[in-house]
Amino acid sequence: MAIRLGRGVAAINYPTGMNLGGDPTQALVHSTPTGNFMVTLSSVDLGQGMKQIMAQICAETIGVPTDRVVVDTADTDTGPHCMGTFASRGTHRAGNAVIQAAKEARQVMLEVAAEELEVNASDLETDGQGNILVKGAPQKSISIFDVALSAHFKRGRSISGRGMFLIPRSYPEKETGAMKPSTCYAHACTVAEVEVDDETGEVTVLTVKNIFEIGRALNPKMVEQQLVGGSWMGISHALYETTEPYYPNRDHGGTDFNQYLMPGPGDLAETEIIVLERPSADGPYGAKGPGEMCANPQIPAVANAVFDAVGVRIDTLPITPERILRALKAQAAN
């Protein structure tokens, strides 16, 4: 009886957005006389930070600091249609809609600034700090705040824009299955190291090294929180979770967090996250959707590591101590 070490690898890809498309999202952007910009959506922030990302996307596109953008979302009386937050689609679909809306608003903003500065709009650029400058002559400038006031009170212009993003729906061909499930894919490769106690069947995940390719890390800190959380969820899925441990007997199903088995802080592996960025052709600033993908590769990587450690395959999730011990017993009997 001993503690045995094992290492396993898994590599995966994952489609961004609702499978087969047909999932539109709209966005509206307008400036207020405060010089701020409002983004109006009906998308849902599940806690992953969608509002923050939409603010950064809008700010980048218009050319203002992120704290000048306010996101108002998820009121069906005010927000334009969004299919919803699922299928790793939030950033990709809503982000593209926000870019389109912000571009239209930016164009009006530059036109008003051009009138104020008596130049052509095409000769203007933003400095990212809240000012509009004449290219090559930055001393000639106007603040976005002043442009917003001028547009509203003097020029009679609405600095606003409409955005829409839709991947047309694909219908699978009946006989061959020819179809277009998605327009862009995120990627991952995970290496897990485990310890397996062959007396108790208990698995300890020592380290998980996750390499994720996500198109573009729009906000690296938020990417990190999502990818680390996903990696933990993957380990939990691999080793712990089931609503029906002895199905069809339902008596053992967990009904609260005391009974439903999940790893606690002490059970979590040393987690390493490395991000690669190959911008996707149709992603907002190249972003893909890693929200679901990040919880997938740990599961087979841990399963493969368990085999590497003790030489038994557990092909049924979750990989519990009971299943490992039964497999070891069967192996010894052979």
Binding site: R7, V9, A11, N13, P172, T176, G177, A178, M179, K180, P181, C184, Y185, H187, A188, C189, T190, V191, K209, I211, F212, E213, E272, I274, L276, R278, S280, A281
Partner: peptide, 22 residues
């Protein structure tokens, strides 16, 4: 298999980095 040409692949690079990191 579903008759779309692969675009934007990055699996190989993820595995190369995994080889180094692990």
């Amino acid at each position: 298999a579903h008759r779309q040409p692969t675009e934007g692949a990055a699996l190989i690079e993820c595995m190369q980095e995994a080889s180094r990191a692990a």
